[in-house]
Design a binder for these strands. Sequence first.
DNA 1: GTAAAAATTTAGACTGGTCTAAAAAATAAT
DNA 2: ATTATTTTTTAGACCAGTCTAAATTTTTAC
Lengths: 217, 217
Amino acid sequence: MPSFTEENYLKAIYHLSGSGSQAVLTNEIAEVMHTKAASVTDMIKKLSAKNFISYEKYYGVKITKQGKSEALMVIRKHRLWETFLVEKLRFNWDEVHEIAEQLEHIQSAVLIQKLDEFLGFPTTDPHGEPIPDKHGKIAVPLRQPLHGLAAGYTGTIEAVHDSDSNLLKYLNRIGAVPGKTIKLIGKEEYDESLEVEVDGKRLTISKTVAENILVTA
Amino acid sequence: MPSFTEENYLKAIYHLSGSGSQAVLTNEIAEVMHTKAASVTDMIKKLSAKNFISYEKYYGVKITKQGKSEALMVIRKHRLWETFLVEKLRFNWDEVHEIAEQLEHIQSAVLIQKLDEFLGFPTTDPHGEPIPDKHGKIAVPLRQPLHGLAAGYTGTIEAVHDSDSNLLKYLNRIGAVPGKTIKLIGKEEYDESLEVEVDGKRLTISKTVAENILVTA
DNA sequence: GTAAAAATTTAGACTGGTCTAAAAAATAAT
DNA sequence: ATTATTTTTTAGACCAGTCTAAATTTTTAC
C-alpha cells in the first residue's frame, strides 16, 4: 500500500508521462511536486524498490503497470470526490480541487464503490475529465489544447485541467467552461498569447492558460 | 493547525478526561493510542508547547479550552461523516468507524458546513452519539453504561460507543442498537457479566461489552 | 573534442513520530 | 520509614520525507 506521498508522486509521474507513455525527468517531477530534485531522487528509489516505476540513473523514470494502476485509482477517487462535491454538496466548479486532493487518499475500496453508485456512475468529472472505472479503464478523450487549434477555427471546450483554483476561477469568470464554444481569432507571435471569442466577447489569453483549455474541433 | 497525529491524541485525551473534566495519565493515553508511554511523553510535550493541553511532569495532562475546541471539531467531523456513510451511502451501522477515522482529518471548514447542511443538520450520529455544532457546542446526554443499571430494571439504548467494528457487529447481531429496550435480569458476581433481555431473548454479555452500551432509565 | 552549463545524484543533516533500554520519581507494601 | 513496585521521563536510535551543499554525469557550445 503506497503512502500518501507516494500516491502523489505516482499521480504526478502518470500525468507528466502522458498517461504512462513517455519517460519523465527528475526536474520535471520536482517542479510539479514543488520540491527539490534531491528529494525526488530519494523518492524515485523508494518507488522503484516497490516496482511502481522503473528507474535508470540519470535517464529518468518510467511508470510500471502496477504504478499506472495505482495512479489511476487515485485519479478515479479524486474525480469521483470532485463530482460529489459539485453535484451533491453544491460547491462551485472552481472550489473543489484542494479538498479532493485530500479526499483522494482515503483508503477503502467499498467506499469508492458506494460513492460511484451514489453519484450514478458518472463518466466525467466537473472539469470534463474522464473518470477511470473500477478496473482502471479510462476513456481516451479526443481533444487538444486550445493553442493547437489553427487561427479562425472554432472548437468546443471539452475539459480544463484542474490543477489550481486560481486558474479555474479565472476560466469561470471569462466563461471558458466545458460545453462552451470558443473561436480562435489569432495568435500573437512574440508571447504566443491567443485572441479568442467566447460568449460573443473578444479577449486575449496567455499561452499558459490556453494549454489548460482542452477542445474538440 | 494540528497534525493528523496530534488530532488523534487530542481526541483520545478529550474522551479519556470525560469531556475535559479530569486529568489523564500517560499510560491511559498510551493504551488507547496503541503506543508506548515514551511516545506519549514526547507528544505531550508538543501538544503542551502548542497550548492544546497543560502538563506537569509525573502528574498527568489536562486539556485546555483550545485543545477541547480542536477535539470537538474532530469529533464533529467524525460523526457527520459517519452519518453521511450510513444515511447516504447505505453503509451498515457497523462498517463506518474505520472510514470515518480517516475522513475526520480532512481540512476544510466549508466542506463540513456544506456536509452538515446536506445531511439536514443531524443532532446524533448512527450510534446515537450527539454531534457537536459548528461552535463546538454538544448536548450532554443523560445516560449511563448498562452495567450501572440495577437488576430488574429496563432501559432504552441511547447510544453505543463506536470504538471498534467487531463490537458493533456483535451488538448488531444481538439486536442491541440505539432505540431498543433492554432489561437487566441479573449480574454475575465473579466476572461482572450481565444477563439481559433484548427482543424477548435472554443472553449473557460481558462487562466489557456492557460498558459500551449506554442507556437511559 | 574539450570546456562550460545544466541536470542528477550523493552526503549529511533536520523534523515528526515512533521505539527500546535505562534512569528518575511516585506509590504501595511491609 | 525504608524497600519494592509501578509509572513516567530521558537518552539514544530509527524511518519517512525533506532540505542544502557538494560531487558526478550528461548535454550543449564552441
